[in-house]
Design a protein around this nucleic acid. Structure first.
Length: 534
RNA sequence: GCUCCGGUAGUAUAGCCCGGUCAAGUAUGGCGGCCUCUCGAGCCGCAGACGCGGGUUCAAAUCCCGCCCGGAGCACCA
């Protein structure tokens, strides 16, 4: 033992370069590239803290139903769901619809959110709606009021803030609990109007963060003017976020709160509540903000844009809503993998779309059947086609068992007419040999802006390979199916596709070869598709 | 301004708590090649990062201090 320590000491006393050069001369094999074992396992989440403290892990996703869900919500949902699943726990959906005035919720959004969760594969075990629970919050308000932990403040907001910013109590704060209880009755019975009274939770008036000092817990909303979509004007005193959320997290037995780090100060506020009520605060994980390049994840902007008709709907391809992603052929599993990859770390991130696409491509590539789509079509006439051709192309190159597409080429007076993509036509020049995929090779004879003429060159694929001829896709100029592809920027690429695509169903993701993956939106006498990605 | 949280390749992530095995792993994107009758997939290879400056230590991505940069909160919103 002693000798080992001595040697280690000696080696450590050398500089790193000295150590390396010594090693090189004495034991070069030790420096040979260390083979690293490859792990192909799916990325798994880091363990949740203090799981053993609780009987069963309970998580919750608590949206305000004032908009549909978007990729920014994916982190909360998938993390909460996956952690609950990982520990055999429970996942709760809780609608936080306690602001009938500014952040107006709606029944429509509640329903769309339920569907979003379902689509994502994260169905909740239980669902609660805060507007059903108002009396529960009242009960706790009364308890805190009579215990002297909360008070009803009638100060004007400016006056209150002027005092609190210097750490001084407002005149209401130290009044006896009886007075506050009677003011509270006044709030409930309509003695006070909007803005005239508010319940505050006592905290430390010298708290270094002024935002935490005596935070508001209830305010009055004139629900005759602003009826709540679910309970109308039944209540005029409504809890604020920190109160309702704090009470519910305890009552619902939430063991692990997973939410964005914008709630870090809210956690400090809510801890006062827990202290006064003798409750233990759950574990809290605050992840960083998730943005995605070029997409606005502001709910209010999304709602406004849809209302004003700037967007075609909640599923406008320019949006990063789940509805839009779904319409574009992004699979929920791709979103799940992305979120698992990202994990719960607190750093803010801006995801690149490629990150999402790569996951999606892995999922859809094996399932997407292949078709030809000729966009910005240009007419191609090929002369010297001496006979009919029939070509069979598999629906999927790796799965020939799935079937094939069959094209018949029937030249008239040795001339066959095709359509090729404008982009391909631009690359052609006189004398160039190109291969029409799975058909034959042609030599270009003339190119104009509206059409290309060529002559049959040869049939063998080997020729094309040897000549390094480009491979382009094509369609016979007959039995064409008009096709529009809606791109992510909502522009439309038009062209034609092959009739065999009619075997595909709506919602199916297919690949237009040399164009990209698309989801079929409509397929009958014409096709509409939404572009997913390359 | 005040309070808090972050900062590893283009993007995302591992490593940081518990210093050495990190000459920094992985994925994606980029580039090159192979393969494939798609510009898709697959295979092989290349390039690419510890925000900056000090300190502690034989040894720092990791610990300490300062700075810089980014973000969030500072609502009678959630």
């Amino acid at each position: 033992m002693a000798i080992v320590e001595e040697v280690v000491q000696e080696v450590n006393s050398l500089s790193q370069s000295e150590q390396i050069s010594l090693l090189k001369t004495l034991w070069p094999e030790a420096l040979a590239s260390k083979a690293r074992e490859e792990k192909a396992w799916e990325k798994s989440l880091p363990p949740l803290p203090n799981v053993e403290k609780y009987g069963r892990v309970v998580t919750r996703f608590a949206p305000n139903p004032d908009c549909v869900l978007h990729i920014g919500s994916a982190r909360a949902i998938i993390l909460c769901y996956e952690y609950a699943k990982m520990y055999g726990g429970k996942f709760i959906l809780r609608f936080e619809d306690t602001d009938p005035r500014l952040k107006k919720s709606s029944l429509e959004f509640m329903d769309l959110i339920r569907k979003d969760l379902d689509w994502l594969g994260c169905p909740p075990d239980e669902e609660y709606i805060q507007s059903d629970r108002i009396e529960i919050y009242y009960k706790y308000a009364e308890k805190l009021l009579s215990d002297g932990y909360a008070y009803v403040c009638k100060c004007k907001p400016e006056e209150f803030h002027a005092r609190v910013i210097v750490g001084e109590p407002c005149p209401c704060r130290d009044l006896p609990p009886e007075e506050h209880l009677s003011r509270w009755d006044g709030m409930l019975s309509g003695v006070y109007g909007e803005g005239e009274a508010v319940v505050r939770i006592k905290t430390d008036l010298k708290h270094p963060n002024p935002a935490i000092r005596d935070w508001p817990a209830f305010r009055i909303i004139d629900t005759d003017k602003y009826p709540h979509p679910r309970v109308g004007s039944k209540y005029r005193v409504w809890p604020l976020y920190n109160f309702a959320c704090g009470i519910d997290d305890h009552l619902m037995g939430i063991t692990h709160i997973i939410r964005g780090k914008e709630h870090l100060t809210n956690q400090e506020r809510q801890k006062y509540l827990y202290r006064y009520l003798g409750w233990e605060y759950p574990e809290a994980i605050h992840y960083g903000r998730l943005k995605i390049v070029g997409a606005s994840l502001s709910k209010s902007k999304i709602v406004r844009g849809v209302m004003e008709g700037i967007y075609t709907g909640w599923d406008d391809p320019r949006l990063a809503t789940f509805l839009a992603l779904r319409r574009r052929g992004i699979k929920p599993e791709a979103i799940r993998r992305l979120i698992l990859e990202i994990g719960p770390r607190p750093a803010d991130i801006i995801i690149s779309w490629e990150n999402l696409y790569a996951h999606n491509r892995k999922i859809i590539d094996p399932i997407a059947n292949r078709f030809f789509f000729v966009w910005d079509p240009v007419r191609l006439t090929v002369e010297g086609v001496m006979r009919d051709f029939v070509t069979h192309i598999p629906l999927h190159p790796d799965h020939p068992e799935r079937g094939e597409r069959i094209f018949h080429i029937r030249p008239i007076r040795r001339v066959a007419v095709f359509l090729i993509s404008g982009r391909d036509a631009e690359q052609l020049y006189v004398g160039r040999i190109v291969r029409l995929m799975e058909l034959f090779n042609i030599e270009v004879k003339a190119v104009s802006s509206s059409q290309v003429s060529a002559v049959f060159y040869s049939e063998s694929y080997g020729d094309a390979k040897r000549l390094n001829a480009p491979l382009i896709h094509w369609l016979p100029n007959e039995n064409l199916l008009p096709c529009n592809v809606v791109m992510p920027d909502n522009t439309i690429v038009s062209g034609f596709t092959e009739p065999s695509i009619k075997t595909s169903r709506v919602d199916e993701v297919v690949q237009f070869e040399r164009f990209g993956f698309v989801r079929i939106e409509k397929v009958d006498e014409e096709v509409t598709a939404f572009y997913a990605h390359k």
